[in-house]
Design a protein around this nucleic acid. Structure first.
Lengths: 238, 238
DNA sequence: CCAACGTATGGCACTCAGTTCCCTCTCGCA
DNA sequence: TGCGAGAGGGAACTGAGTGCCATACGTTGG
């Protein structure tokens, strides 16, 4: 279907930024990223070459037109989060925002994923984007854990873990061609991180007083992460 | 002191790659990275422009001349590691290799750090280098955890955690100007990861049979990472 | 001693990303 | 009608990176 609907009388001229992004992406799919020049893009979009760089600081930016606003969303989300909530939960919520952006346009996301996998320059660019998300999450955690021992260290490790878990689930979903429930897959991956680093339990913990204790027994050779699972299920079971 | 020693009779002509790297780094410190052109570098090195790109695929590569060999070292280290060892321990050992490369030339590392901080292009490039280390570590863990539940996910999360912990300690050391014991600082940071994700205990566990059990008691509201500390000290205390 | 050959290097010209500077068009407003 | 601002167009420039070929040097073989 055509994307230029004129429901409201006057034909809305599509904003130049979107025209450029669409023309660029088409060409990238047709000829590949490196074999497409900026001149090709502006020729197809029917605009001047200078205009491209007014809307995208680099050719790579045209492949990720929506990350800038998503980063702003994440910043707003973290700023608005209550300090009562478990900091790790909040950060996982921030990661979910990114996922939702990908899941909103499955076919576009999958095509872009395939493109990015094959072009080293795009992989590098994507890294710098991901890094900004990670630094945003780490900054939030550092503020929350200001006074804690090794707060800064833990903040960076947890932020990296959340990003890695998110990306693992996201990439699995993208590789599958966008089949299945991406959000559920990411939640499952993030659960691994929350179980290890979260301060509070996922369960609402209805009337548990601080006096309550839990006793657990483990065999001495058990792997730590399995012990953690046991501890967690024991703590959750109220 | 001069670096062209002639101990063995014939004056050894320094290899072109090092001549170029040295000339490039000098100029980057004097004028900054972006205000230095490749022509400037080859002029100072006294060689042809084409030779620069024979030894460095890009201008950025001249800032990180030793990462390629360090990555090869890490790959060799992981390939040679015994499968008996705790996989997380092995990966931490791999990260230590990188640190030792930085610690071998403190003043160079510190100057390069300051340069990298200020130049976005170099930051991005460094990201892609770090990513290759991370993927190497994750690949090792994935092989080790092939048959485990969520092996691939855990591999990526642990690799990201190790890299984040390493980088946190490394950057703290670099910011300090290279004072203090970098290796000790990194070990301390990696300990946080090992405590959470390591399968075995650091202690040799002399004659502990699998029948031995440990009992621990925790208050119900305690943060998970603190519970882990308790479990770990209980398990260690044999 | 010379020829043939592989390798290391220099030089030149080209493509293309990204920038600078300036021009034109249009729209809103006085 | 005039005018200022902002969006877009376009020529020219810088500099990274590549392709192609010429040159120099050391080595091997006759």
């Amino acid at each position: 279907m055509s994307e230029a609907r004129e429901v409201d009388g006057a034909p809305k001229k599509a904003p130049m930024r979107e025209v450029l992004a669409k023309a660029a992406f088409q060409l990238f799919l047709e000829r590949g990223f490196e074999r497409t020049t900026v001149d090709d893009i502006v020729a197809r979009a029917g605009v001047g070459r200078r205009s491209f760089f007014r809307y995208f600081p680099s050719k790579e930016d045209a492949v990720f037109p929506d990350h800038e606003s998503c980063l702003a969303d994440m910043t707003g989300f973290l700023d608005a989060a209550s300090d009562e909530r478990d900091a790790v939960d909040v950060v996982c919520g921030g990661a979910r925002l990114v996922l939702r952006m990908y899941a909103a346009n499955p076919e576009f996301s999958v095509q872009r994923y395939r493109l990015t996998r094959e072009v080293p320059g795009l992989r590098t660019y994507e890294l710098s984007v991901v890094r900004r998300y990670e630094r945003t999450l780490a900054g939030y955690l550092r503020r929350r854990w200001d006074r804690a021992d090794d707060g800064a260290l833990r903040a960076e490790v947890v932020a990296a873990s959340v990003v890695a878990a998110h990306n693992n689930a996201l990439r699995t979903w993208l590789r599958s061609g966008g089949e299945g429930d991406a959000e559920q897959a990411v939640d499952r991956a993030l659960e691994l991180v929350r179980r290890v680093w979260g301060e509070a339990e996922a369960a609402p913990a209805p009337a548990a007083t601080d006096e309550e204790v839990v006793v657990m027994v483990a065999t001495k050779g058990a792997p730590m992460w399995r012990v953690i699972q046991q501890v967690e299920s024991a703590l959750r079971n109220d």
